[in-house]
Amino acid sequence: MTGEATRYRAAAPDSLRAVTLDAMVALYHRASGQTHVVASPVPEILEALHPDPLTLDALLAQLSGRFDIGDADVRALEARVEELVAAGLVEAL
């Protein structure tokens, strides 16, 4: 990566509703009116990225500290986070 690493910030928790369906969670995002059916670790990522934005490395460190993430790999995490950026649940700053 060149220059300053991108930081990411998630939508505020009060803009999200969550209903646990089974292993999946149905998230309703009030700002977009869209529903996302997601699995772990998406809810955890969203929680970690709010209110303060984090870089990918910092996010990975925080998730590994709190959860048992077997294949802690920054590339895999980046792919997940970029999906959330495309969905608008996370903003790249």
Binding site: A31, S32, G33, Q34, G88, A92
Partner: peptide, 16 residues
């Protein structure tokens, strides 16, 4: 109201 949400969201995604 739903149309308003969708329109504002589209503007927000364009802003980003």
């Amino acid at each position: 109201a739903q149309g308003r949400t969708a329109a504002l969201w589209e503007a927000e995604m364009a802003r980003r």
